[in-house]
Simulated assay, not measured.
Amino acid sequence: MTVAFIFPGQGSQAIGMGKALFDAFAASRKIFEEVDEALGEKLSTLMFEGDPAQLQLTANAQPALMAVSLAALRALESEAGAVLARDVKFVAGHSLGEYSALAAAGALKIADAARLLRLRGKAMQAAVPVGAGAMAALIGADPELAAKIAGEATAASGVLCEVANDNGGGQIVVSGARQAVELAIEIAKENGVKRAMLLPVSAPFHCALMRPAADAMREALAATEIQPPAVDLVANVTAAPTRDPDEIRQLLVAQVCGAVRWRECMGFMHRQGVELFVEIGAGKVLAGLVKRTAEGARSLNVGVPSDVESFKLTA
């Protein structure tokens, strides 16, 4: 069976995530300890029993989600005998999940990934004043219609609105200045889009307004060692495979302002023969999208100890 490991992005965080892995598996526990040490604070305590509002902060949610993903992967390795380089054809991650995918495949050290994601979260939040930007989901729109809506909203408002995520299954997200995004919602309704609604996010991710954050990540990534991953990474902004460290560095910078082409990423992997997509980490968002983006493929998610047992049975 041909397998891809996929890694979730922001929105899957919840207090208590990763605690069962921490309690059950020594290999998982080491990941949380390594992330805590890299950040110089007990992020794990916030994740397991802290204030939900603090965990929602982008600078905390991003490294926290990466930690859960890597802890789940270590559980698969130690308890189910999984070997990524042997068992997996591709890795991919949604937005911040791309860092998790790279750490899983050995391209980034876990401590480096944690520090990069902390910086990424802070830089993205700082790029646009709170309240000045927004994101909206257009449910039932295709990519062409979403791009048309965003363009019309930009032209009418005089400020930016762009397509930020193409998640598949008619789930498109637009991002930009609040005035333009709110106008895009109205235009979407006029164009027959089933649902159009603001998302509860703190910044307009994956649009050109994030350029200051992209500049910060360019500088940080230039100083970070990146190794060729053990398997191909299917990148967010190209929906194409790569193992080249210099290209990966450039793609991670481009990803800050660029759209997440998740539908195309999944379609590419499925056409290359992937039959099973395993979501590694918190939540089940990506596994739930598999039926809409890779018809006929199967999905699993691995985020708690019982999921490790399910993976054994599947494998």
Score class of each variant (00 low, 15 high):
Thr2Gly: 08
Thr2Asn: 14
Phe5Arg: 07
Gly9Glu: 01
Gln10Ser: 01
Ser12Lys: 13
Gln13Glu: 15
Met17His: 06
Lys19His: 12
Ala20Met: 08
Leu21Thr: 00
Leu21Ile: 14
Phe22Val: 00
Ala27Val: 10
Ile31Asp: 06
Glu33Asp: 14
Glu33Tyr: 03
Ala38Ile: 08
Lys42Ala: 15
Leu43Val: 11
Ser44Trp: 01
Ser44Glu: 11
Gly50Thr: 08
Asp51Met: 11
Ala53His: 11
Ala53Met: 10
Gln54Trp: 03
Gln54Lys: 14
Gln54Glu: 15
Ala59Tyr: 09
Asn60Cys: 12
Asn60Gln: 13
Gln62Ser: 09
Gln62Tyr: 06
Met66His: 05
Ser69Glu: 12
Leu76Gln: 09
Leu76Tyr: 08
Ser78Met: 01
Glu79Asp: 13
Val83Arg: 14
Leu84Lys: 04
Leu84Thr: 01
Arg86Gln: 11
Val88Ser: 03
Val88Asn: 01
Ala92Phe: 02
Ser95Ile: 06
Ser95Asn: 08
Glu98Met: 07
Ser100Gln: 07
Leu102Ile: 07
Ala104His: 03
Ala105Glu: 00
Gly106Gln: 08
Lys109Gly: 15
Ala114Lys: 09
Ala114Glu: 05
Leu116Lys: 07
Met124Leu: 04
Ala126Phe: 07
Gly131His: 05
Ala134Pro: 07
Met135Val: 02
Leu145Asp: 00
Ala146Trp: 04
Ala150Cys: 13
Ala150Val: 11
Gly151His: 08
Gly151Ile: 15
Ala153Asp: 02
Thr154Pro: 12
Gly158Pro: 14
Val159Gln: 08
Val159Asn: 09
Asn165Glu: 07
Asn167Ser: 02
Gly169Val: 01
Gln171Met: 00
Val173Ser: 08
Val173Trp: 03
Gln179Phe: 10
Ile185Val: 14
Glu186Leu: 12
Ala188Lys: 01
Lys189Pro: 11
Asn191Val: 02
Gly192Cys: 00
Gly192Ser: 05
Lys194Arg: 15
Pro200His: 11
Val201Trp: 08
Pro204Thr: 03
Cys207Ser: 15
Leu209Tyr: 10
Met210Arg: 07
Ala213Thr: 06
Ala214Phe: 05
Ala216Arg: 06
Glu219Trp: 08
Ala220Ile: 14
Ala223Glu: 13
Thr224Cys: 08
Pro228Asn: 00
Val231Leu: 09
Ala235Cys: 13
Ala239Val: 11
Asp246Val: 14
Arg249Leu: 11
Gln250Phe: 00
Val256Asn: 04
Trp262Phe: 06
Glu264Cys: 04
Gly267Cys: 05
Gly267Glu: 06
Phe268His: 00
Phe268Pro: 06
Met269Trp: 07
Arg271Thr: 07
Gln272Pro: 06
Gln272Val: 04
Glu275Phe: 02
Gly281Ser: 06
Leu289Ala: 06
Val290Thr: 15
Arg292Ala: 05
Glu295Ser: 15
Gly296Ala: 04
Arg298Thr: 02
Leu300Tyr: 00
Gly303Ser: 04
Ser306Ile: 00
Glu309Val: 07
Ser310Gly: 11
Ser310Glu: 13
Phe311Arg: 00
Ala315Gln: 05
Ala315Arg: 15
